[in-house]
Amino acid sequence: MTAPLTHLGDMPIEEFLRHYWQKKPLLIRNAFPGFESPISPDELAGLALEEEVESRIVLEKGATPWELRNGPFDEKTFETLPESHWTLLVQAADQYVPEVNQMLDAFRFIPNWRLDDIMISYAPDKGGVGPHFDYYDVFLLQGLGKRHWKIGQMCDNDSPRIEGTRLKILSEFHTTDEWVVEPGDMLYIPPGIAHWGNAQGDDCMTYSIGFRAPSHADIISEVGQEVALSIADDLRFSDPDLKLQNNPGEIGAEAISQVQKILQQHLTAENIAHWFGKFMTERKYLDHTDEEPMDIDADEWQSALADGELLWRHPSARLAFHSDAKGTLLFADGEAICCSRELAELVCKEVEISWRELKELVQDPQNRAAITQLVNQETLLVDE
């Protein structure tokens, strides 16, 4: 397991969070000293051939300006690409390459539930995806070769875009800073800041560590649907103090106030926490298998651990927990599970768990049931 970063270059993490996180860009020279890419360009291209892997190719001078092609690709695709001005993007590479997955642990100074995945891009000379901005924070770690980055203006939905492409390429870019980065250098970009990176020479690979940032629209829509499932159908809008109106067509302030009270009644901190934990731990990419999983009972996994096997966190697993006066909920891959806070902390913190760490905790039947559920939904894997 990689330890979380304590510094970005010479800067303590607390200073970074106070002065840069979601505020302004930061270049960190030699953020990962001696960094060596855990995956080669050929291996990345190999991932893009796989059906279950989300991949894209962007050609600056394709059939349209900034042409977007979606994978999976075949070997012939790569043989016919031009010598420059294109980029291959492979999403969620951390779910397919264990060494890439371990890189996420370095960024756990940001809460687990905010971390998303690692996208890897490969580009020959002058390859890039054009001037753009993102709605989320991103760390851009240079893995191989060199990339020339330009930082631009703050953008929003009204920022002008180039027409005729499926990508959201900015038609205006006002450079405020620019750097050439090399392996181990890392750039932090807050949401909304325009940026534009182009490969400088061949074999340029960049690791993009992204973060989840649900839109306000998603939050309102999703929490409403979740909470509605638990509300009895006989709870209805009511107005026992109705007064005669001058015009029957008017919706009065009293009616609006009643609707507000209904929302406040159901959108409690407890209900929101229950929804938010499940929503933020849902897996974006699910495992595809034709095999029907076989349930494992508590005796089986306990016996395996007592014999020296370990519980491993699935590379795609997403975990978080929330405690209040009623107890602790562990959120795992979109499910809410009751358990002790001690167990929740252990499962969220450790990549591998031994019997020695669990033995005392699973004397509690609730904790034992929680581990059994985590094993059967393959959040935790039993392995030597």
Results as ranks from 00 to 15, higher is better:
G145I: 04
I120L: 15
K76P: 00
I151L: 15
M103G: 03
P160S: 11
M103R: 07
K150L: 13
G128A: 04
P72C: 12
R161N: 00
T77K: 09
F73K: 11
K126P: 00
I118C: 02
V138D: 05
S159V: 07
P82G: 04
D125E: 13
P131H: 02
L144P: 01
P131N: 06
D94I: 10
K150I: 00
R69G: 00
T80A: 04
V97F: 10
D74G: 14
P131G: 14
T87K: 02
C155N: 12
V97D: 03
T80H: 09
M119W: 04
M154Q: 15
P72V: 11
D116A: 06
L141D: 05
G71V: 11
F107T: 10
F139R: 13
I110D: 02
T77I: 09
I110F: 14
D156Y: 00
I118H: 05
G145N: 07
N101D: 09
D156P: 04
S84Q: 13
M119N: 12
Q95A: 09
L68C: 01
A92E: 15
E99N: 05
D117I: 11
P111G: 01
Y122K: 00
F78P: 03
S159K: 05
E99Q: 15
D117A: 05
C155K: 06
N157Y: 13
F107C: 04
R147H: 06
Q153G: 03
I110A: 12
D74R: 14
V100M: 07
